[in-house]
């Protein structure tokens, strides 16, 4: 299949369709409104569902309702909108419903700005909503990778019966790059007769299904949380993704960076290499689960004297890096969070 030049936001919408998801509910917000604009035209062409909800809060429950009825479904938003959706996402995690949420991050807190940012790292990986739950979080660094992660996200959400988040910054959404949609990543939804409220007749069953997150009995609630925990542990074992760059050199500094920021770092590493300075990089592609072992191993070599967390946020990922490195090496932070993406020149400095 030949490549097409697409804006990240449009490519994300198309990737969902190509992976077999034909249901989309959303509320407009910069810098990702192009997804809704694209799908408003595209979904009718493929017989899919497009609906602009009245708020992000409502949208998160449209997603919940559709997912609980057994449909493959997704939405896209940006930071403040994700905060509003966090309520519904918490309910979905508790009720074990799969869906894909895309956050094309902008600066915060509050209304912040509309420029690229990675300020929602904590929100996505630690505490998206109330309660004891996690999302599987993937962070693309190019439009092509956003497409592939989108297409992988649906089967992963179904495998774990848990929401999956694609965490991109504004540039991933706004940038145009050549993309192709691998046919091999098109999947059929997993059979959900055991839990989805698809209608007794639909699944020819006498046993009704109930989708809920309410467990008034303390033991039942504890058991549900233990079940969720076991899924997150399984994610840690099976879903870690990362990319290593220049780690076969005798690097003195190990960078950890993700998304657009990691590409800036790659250019900086190349330019330093030309000057005879070796720097390695681990780029987490999944932020939860975090590539802890890989970072620890890369930091624990004798020629590495310092680890640097380079992020478009004020020192969020650094906490996961410190946890991974376990004090074996000092961990420093460099970042910017006003909307400008730090340039390779600044990273070098």
């Amino acid at each position: 299949m030949s490549k097409v030049l697409m804006k990240g936001n449009e490519a994300i919408g198309e990737a969902a369709i190509r992976s077999g998801c034909l249901n989309y509910f959303a509320y407009p917000i910069t810098p990702q409104s192009e997804v809704a604009e694209y799908l408003a035209r595209r979904m009718p062409e493929v017989g899919g569902v497009f609906l602009q909800g009245e708020s992000e809060v409502a949208v998160s429950y449209m997603i919940f309702g559709a997912a609980a009825a057994g449909a493959r479904v997704f939405t896209t938003s940006s930071s403040p909108g994700i905060s509003l959706m966090s309520e519904g996402i918490s309910y979905m995690a508790g009720a074990q419903c799969p869906a894909v949420f895309v956050n094309i991050m902008r600066g915060g807190p509050g209304l912040g700005g509309i420029l690229p940012s990675q300020a929602d790292y904590f929100q996505a990986t630690k505490s998206l909503g109330h309660g004891d739950f996690r999302l599987l979080v993937m962070a693309p660094a190019s439009v092509q990778e956003a497409v592939e992660m989108m297409m992988d996200a649906f089967p992963l959400a179904e495998k774990y019966r848990n929401p999956v988040m694609i965490l991109g910054d504004g540039l991933i959404g706004q940038m145009m790059e050549p993309v192709e949609f691998p046919d091999s990543k098109k999947t059929e939804p997993l059979n959900n007769d055991a839990w989805a409220t698809s209608g007794l007749d639909t699944r020819k069953s006498d046993t009704r299904n109930l989708v809920k997150s309410l467990f008034l009995d303390p033991e039942a609630l504890n058991n549900n949380n233990l079940l969720l925990k076991s899924k997150y542990e399984q994610m840690k074992r099976e879903e870690v993704r990362f990319e290593a760059y220049n780690t076969d050199s005798a690097y003195n500094v190990l960078i950890v960076s993700y998304g657009t920021m990691s590409r800036v770092c790659r250019t900086a590493i190349d330019s330093m290499k030309a000057d005879g300075i070796e720097v390695g990089m681990i780029r987490p592609q999944t932020l939860f689960p975090f590539p802890e072992d890989q970072i620890r191993a890369a930091a624990d070599v004798t020629h590495c004297s310092v680890v640097a967390s380079i992020e478009m946020s004020m020192g969020q990922m650094i906490e996961d890096i410190e946890r991974s490195v376990q004090g074996k090496k000092p961990v420093k932070w460099f970042g910017k969070c006003g909307g400008d993406v730090p340039t390779p020149e600044e990273v070098v400095a």
Binding site: L5, T30, P31, I114, G170, L171, Q174, M175, M176, E177, T260, R263, V264, R266, T267, A268, D270, V341, P342, T343, P344
Partner: peptide, 30 residues
């Protein structure tokens, strides 16, 4: 890589974009 400036102004404001063309995978699009 085609990287736009983007903002609330649809008309009349400053608009710019950068196109990066390379024979290698593109690192920083900024």
């Amino acid at each position: 890589s085609w990287v736009p400036s983007y903002g609330p102004e649809m008309r009349g404001g400053t608009a710019y974009c950068t196109v990066v063309i390379s024979d290698q995978p593109i690192g920083s699009p900024v």
